[in-house]
Design a protein around this nucleic acid. Structure first.
Lengths: 365, 365
DNA sequence: TTGTAGGCGTTATCAG
DNA sequence: CTGATAACGCCTACAA
């Protein structure tokens, strides 16, 4: 019956040419190579189970017909799509762009493909995108942060799709996430500034809305300060967008308050660059008048007239390891990757001890 | 990992509930709603063909079972994956990142998903990635540039996958590409500098290896200069990487030559920023001593002590329109989008007329 | 408006 | 090692 069906389905070759009429399939290859479809399938997937002779013949037929296997059919039959979905908050921030590139490279090296979506820091949207990915049959999922839609677990449970949270790490959730310890990272940075003698700190940062990473970093600052009995005054707390112009604006704002901060910690590299550029406009000397530090290292920070102190996160490493971890789980391989990724405080010219005249510490203490 | 894996893999059914045993399918939903599978299928894909009563019952069954349709099966049956593949040279350049974001947004709005790969400016790799995408069953393809692997046409022919080349436009290939007219764009920029009185031009640009866009832009410069009988001297031609530090290096290099250029055209924003920052180190005044202009607008250019003249390309527009064009073709809709995208020369502080003393024109002419 | 019955292109389970 | 043949989960003529 199958023969009947196929003979009726195919539009007749008017031309009489034995060329491919519309789309060559596994079946056509099998016919051309005088073997069964099963053998063709094996020749591609498990070549060692096919005699060299047939293998040769089959491959000849394949690239003679220009056959390209149908991944959707294969996925249906194997329940594996060799596809990984990644949902990032945005792509226009350097760290995520770098991570994405690394993920894609890593996946490609092992025959996987990347599905990508941007949630724009919206949990609901992230959830919908994940759902879409599940529908598309992704084998694994790469997300950012640990804070997701409440229904996510339920959705993932029945499909048992492995998942990894990136750009976060905490000992409590070891094994489910890959990234820097955001809290510790700014804790250390703050300690560095404290040890340098700073007492009045300002924070210029992006919104922590649906951003547990930024939130953790803020917490790190506050924890470090609290140990010294210091708190950030409300007027030294500037939260806004993620841009250079915002950095300028917020910097000017906090520098106009009393007491004037001697150290400004910026939540991302653009804010830091903006803060520094505004300091020039304001005629301030960095770091004599004020120290400026940032988060994440973008190239321009190291090339400005006063290079900017910051903390470098190995975003590529995060992406690469996330991809590797997922693939290892999927292939049931053992893998030993560091879940906590490297970070490094890069001390440059924009940070130094507060000058005596600007530091009201001696007065207020 | 085995302990983790096994414990997560099999969530035992503690409760004796007849809940979903492993994976609910269309069939299960049909049973639960007391209808046929066909009706369920219609209820999701063509709701207007199903009576409200049944529709209601079916949807109830669906989210009671938490059913998520299997996209791979659907794709196999319909020959449509609602998936678009994009291959970019890189993601770490602002323009491509912005375009990618726009593409993803646009696709998502209409239920499509984005497959992404980076070719790293390698034609062979691009070809392999495209092939992979075809295997995965993409409905359409977004590429960059017009220069692709020679076998690409052959590959696409049999599958008839619509394709759109982005970040390029020329009247000759109208309808197959969306982007700026790269040649014209730097032609105009060069004219602007010529009219300002510049005669000695230097070029600081990235490699044109597999980059027809950059090549066209270079051509634009040369064409404009040729009209005035001017050519770029070999010693004023600096080609290198794509980075700020490279920009510094190449700028210093060309400025050390004789005759000293009064205008330096940079092939991308990072080179321009680098060139400007190096000019500071060299103690040069911009634009009195030398004019610096770039390509593409990144935020920092507008915030440096001397803001940088550049040409702005609407990368989001490119991405958005590419996505729309593809979807329109796939849905057999008419669509009227501009294939040539907006560009704008943004004149800022870094460009101006050459000062008399630096301009050897009066001598050489 | 709803149900029935292949079929989409591969893989996988069996025998030979 | 190779060849039939039944899935895989959904869609869609065709019938009712």
């Amino acid at each position: 019956m199958s023969t009947q069906g196929s003979s009726e389905k195919k539009p007749p070759n008017h031309a009489g040419q034995p060329r491919q009429s519309s789309l060559a399939g596994l079946r056509e290859v099998a016919v051309a190579a005088h073997v069964s479809t099963a053998t063709v399938s094996r020749a591609i997937n498990t070549p060692h189970l096919v005699s060299p002779k047939l293998r040769e013949r089959i491959h000849q037929a394949i690239d003679q017909l220009g056959w390209v296997p149908d991944g959707t059919a294969r996925a249906l039959a194997t329940k594996r799509s060799y596809t990984i979905g990644a949902v990032f908050p945005t792509l226009t921030h350097g760290d995520f762009a770098r991570a994405t590139t690394a993920i894609q490279q890593e996946l490609q090296a092992r025959g996987y493909t990347l599905l990508l979506a941007c949630s724009d820091y919206d949990l609901e949207q992230e959830f919908q995108q994940i759902k879409k990915f599940i529908e598309r049959g992704v084998d694994g999922l790469i997300l950012v942060g640990e804070n997701h839609h409440p229904d996510l677990d339920k959705l993932l449970a029945r499909r048992s799709v492995p998942i990894i949270n990136t750009f976060v790490y905490s000992p409590q959730t070891h094994g489910t996430c890959i990234g820097p310890d955001n809290r510790k990272l700014f804790f250390d940075m703050t300690r560095y500034l404290i040890e340098m003698g700073h007492v009045v700190f300002a924070i210029v940062a992006q919104s922590v809305q649906n951003n547990d990473r930024a939130e953790a970093r803020l917490q790190g600052i506050q924890d470090a300060l609290a140990e010294e009995g210091i708190a950030v005054r409300p007027q030294h707390f500037a939260i806004g967008q993620w841009s250079i112009s915002e950095g300028r604006h917020l910097f000017r704002q906090v520098m106009a308050t009393q007491p004037r901060p001697t150290a400004v910690i910026c939540g991302n590299p653009y804010l830091a660059v903006g803060a520094y550029l505004e300091s020039i406009s304001m005629g301030l000397e960095v770091p004599q008048d004020v120290s400026i530090v940032g988060y994440d290292d973008i190239e321009v920070m190291n090339h400005l007239p006063v290079s900017l102190t910051t903390v470098r996160v190995q975003s590529e490493q995060v992406g690469r390891n996330a991809a590797r971890y997922l693939m290892a789980r999927l292939e049931d391989e053992a893998i030993d990757i560091p879940f906590q990724c490297d970070t490094e405080i890069v001390i440059r010219a924009s940070s130094g001890p507060p000058s005596r005249k600007n530091n009201p510490a001696s007065l207020s203490l």
